[in-house]
Amino acid sequence: MNIWRPPKIRRGALAVLRRNVLVWRKLIIPALLMNFGEPVLYLLGLGFGLGQFVGEMDGMPYLAFLASGIIASSAMTTATFEGMYSVFTRMVPQRTYEAILATPLEVDDVLAGEMMWCATKSTISGIAILTVATALGVVTSWQALWVIPAVFLIGMCFAGPAMIMASFASNYDFFNYYFVLVVTPMFIICGVFYPIDTLPEVVRNFVQILPLTHAVALARPLVTSTELTQPLIHVAVLAAYASISFYIAVVLVRKRLLI
């Protein structure tokens, strides 16, 4: 059993995805409250409040600018939380993976299912924000629905690194490092709150390698019906982060569980 062998994607992943959907369904009310409540607060508080002073940003009302950025960043945080805390819970204290691995399913199936679930949760949160944004008059075209598959991809892209963190975490506190050193900086510098053009050149070049920059660059034009530049590059970067991090996570979880 070579732990480096390439992962196989099989139907079994859907059983793992289904398991998580069934658990989510049991707690659907608080889950949806969170999904809708948070963007309402952000968009009303920041969008209207701050928007009074800012007016327009990058040629669009600040509320629209913010809403379209938050869709991307919320996909990141949702997938990150699920990929770290929930995956760790099921892997270590709850021993759910141990039970699953006693069936014909393998680590590949488990993590593929988890990754799809993280992306599904990101998508649910994206739909919630889109709904709120539409109610606030931000969305002007049906074209905005294209952001939904984009958000799924963004979720996959951030789920992988989160699962890597879960694969070698020894406790929940460990995840603070990842939030402080990775997630929060991206949240601040990748164009969610202001255009990256305003950053100093060095930083502007650096943020090009960060996935959230590409997530925002993809989501914002889709939501606000503005011009989409270089969509294939953004999709390619997000897909590359998703697939490489998935592979690393599979190897590390094999190493942790199949000993």
Binding site: R11, G12, A15, R18, R19, L22, A99, I100, P104, L105
Partner: peptide, 15 residues
């Protein structure tokens, strides 16, 4: 999950 759901979910892992 409940007892019965535990068995249902486990069955799904075997397809």
């Amino acid at each position: 999950f409940s007892i019965e759901e535990n068995l249902q979910i486990y069955a799904s892992y075997f397809g």
